[in-house]
Nucleic acid binder design. Structure first.
Lengths: 345, 345
DNA sequence: GATAGTGTTGGGAGCGCTTCCAGGGAGGGG
DNA sequence: CCCCTCCCTGGAAGCGCTCCCAACACTATC
């Protein structure tokens, strides 16, 4: 059986309290007893019971990261592994554990909500890319669980970390215009997610600023999957844009395949620009011009922000400040965009 | 402050024990008191404290999945998200939580080992694709923590779940031979991982069986990354095979890019076959012929097997049986393989 | 009508740890 | 020489739950 604090205390000839002090590096222990206790710990092969400790301290060193149902199907998108890597990295460095909750649809989402919100293990939650109407947000507030959302959120009590989707979309659009394009279409993301809205908004702003027309037919909506991108592009092909701004690389890749299937060349006939900068943007031919977002950093910062939120809430500040952070995006020029022909008009 | 069992007991006018019985659905509670207690629970907004419960029952309902350092860099490969999805699915269905441990190198791996093996929260561990010399395995044995490895393992006490890598590699090679190829090269995986060994072995077996020569120059080793696949292919190009069997789709994609860069056509000049069946095998041009492994199922079955191992160890069976499972693979024929020219000889 | 059995309840010990509090010993200042 | 600190240590009370055991009805049986 595993050793307890008492066993160690007995073999060291001290009290349980003293052993506890040694383990928690409390200053008030004489060097002599300290080493005696350390030997005893060694000898017993003692390891503290984390659960008992949690019960006494009311801290678990566990946080959760939850991926809502609306995006679980996108989970194979390299975005998530990268984000997770950043998140685990931050956890590792701070001695925290990360519980991964994916809504898989095999179980009632009410049950999942309940399980997350009332888990009892979780000190806080990172909500990965929830849609704006995500029902988990109210539950989390109700249960008083600290959380940070990835992606902006309209409720102004919500802590979030976001990337500059607006600016990224602007850069992408400016780039196309700079290359001489005027017939520019876009494949937008679903309208119930903030990035979808923002990237579309950035696109439209720049188009308006340049007095370029954007008819309804030039805007198609995809669901961030490759198939969705392909379908959207097939629709756009009817209006023959010379360039397309896709709200994600995965959709851009779908678009490229649709363009190819129509026997058109990229970038000669149609230029394509994506968003995200996922690895397969380098796999596709031609290599994808895109807007880079610092995915791994997003995960890391979300977790670190969560730690701040948790410590705010623990230190009992009544009306703690809301934590928000917006990370910059960056234009990555590769080979899927060429010059537009439209200078002539 | 959050309510405790005692609070509920008081408002229901019963003892703590009775409330506990209601919560744990113990049969010996009269319908009358049961409903009274349920009302009280409702009224107090009571939720059981999972940590206290764990301390009393010695069960946490938490398992861990750990991705060793050797494969963390491959984490963006769609293999992992898919596997994780299967794993979380199984956890969700069984009311378990999943702690994700990625070795990121930002922290000493000894510390990570320790943290996992002595976590105290974790009832068991799924070890994702550890290399054969993974040091975590001995730690896990030493601490007596139930675990299941994904991928076979030479130590015959290790529970594992694997796919039929040997059979898959055989199928792939047979397919190439059937198409008329005789100059077949392979891009193998690292030799310290079981799948790398097995896939190479399957390849060699079939080649031998058909009395086809395999010189050393026809075998290149990659590290499962696209860049590794590309480098390996560049090397193989010197000996001009007419077909290549790559040990993973990601490496196959790298190979395709190397072949393209050398101005050769696929499948006309060189046929390429991969292994895994990841989504981007459909993105690449031409679509990749490959060997499919049921990735999501691997994750699910690993977790379910772990549950069995845990319940074995809990029920105190001294020498519990070793759990092992090998899943079938399947040939997926697409467009990256063509007929070999070598029938003439 | 006494006895055994069955179903229901409350009391209490204990899970392994932290942490407050009080007490004892040593050292320094008056 | 005494008193006041300060440092170190042990005792004990909890954290919130489970679960065993004893106690108490209340019915069924002979």
């Amino acid at each position: 059986m595993s050793q307890t604090l008492d066993d160690v205390a007995k073999t060291a000839g001290v009290s349980r309290s003293t052993v506890s002090r040694v383990i928690n590096a409390h200053p008030n222990v004489s060097a002599d007893t300290r080493s005696r206790v350390e030997h005893a710990i060694e000898k017993c092969g003692y390891r503290p019971n984390a659960v008992a400790r949690s019960l006494a301290t009311n801290r678990t060193n566990i946080i959760g990261i939850v991926v809502p149902e609306s995006v679980t199907k996108l989970f194979t998108d390299p975005y998530f592994p990268l984000m997770l890597r950043g998140a685990t990295e931050a956890c590792n460095r701070n001695g925290y554990h990360l519980i991964l909750s994916l809504f898989t649809g095999s179980i009632d989402s009410d049950v999942m909500h309940d399980r997350i919100a009332r888990s009892g293990y979780i000190e806080g939650v990172v909500l990965a890319n929830s849609s704006l109407d995500e029902m988990l947000v109210p539950s989390l507030f109700k249960e008083g669980i600290p959380f940070v959302n990835i992606g902006r959120h309209p409720d102004d009590r919500v802590n979030y970390i976001d990337v500059d989707n607006l600016g990224g979309a602007r850069m992408a659009t400016e780039h196309l215009i700079r290359m001489g394009h005027t017939r520019i279409a876009t494949i937008a993301g679903p309208n119930n997610m903030a990035p979808g809205q923002d990237r579309l908004e950035g696109f439209l702003e720049v188009m308006r600023a340049h007095r370029l027309p954007v008819s309804k037919e030039m805007i198609a909506e995809g669901d961030y999957t490759e198939a969705g991108g392909r379908a959207a592009m097939m629709q756009l092909l009817n209006v023959r844009p010379t360039a397309v701004f896709a709200s994600s690389d995965t959709m851009a890749i779908g678009a490229i395949k649709a363009i190819r299937a129509a026997n058109l060349a990229i970038p000669d006939d149609i230029s394509v620009i994506g968003f995200d900068d996922i690895p397969s943007g380098l796999t596709i031919d031609p290599e994808l011009t895109t807007v880079r977002q610092p995915i791994e950093q997003i995960g890391r910062l979300a977790v670190e922000t969560l730690f701040n939120v948790i410590s705010d809430s623990t230190s009992g500040k009544r009306e703690a400040s809301v934590h928000r952070l917006v990370l910059p995006t960056e234009l990555v020029i590769r080979k899927s965009c060429g010059h537009g022909m439209s200078r002539k008009d």
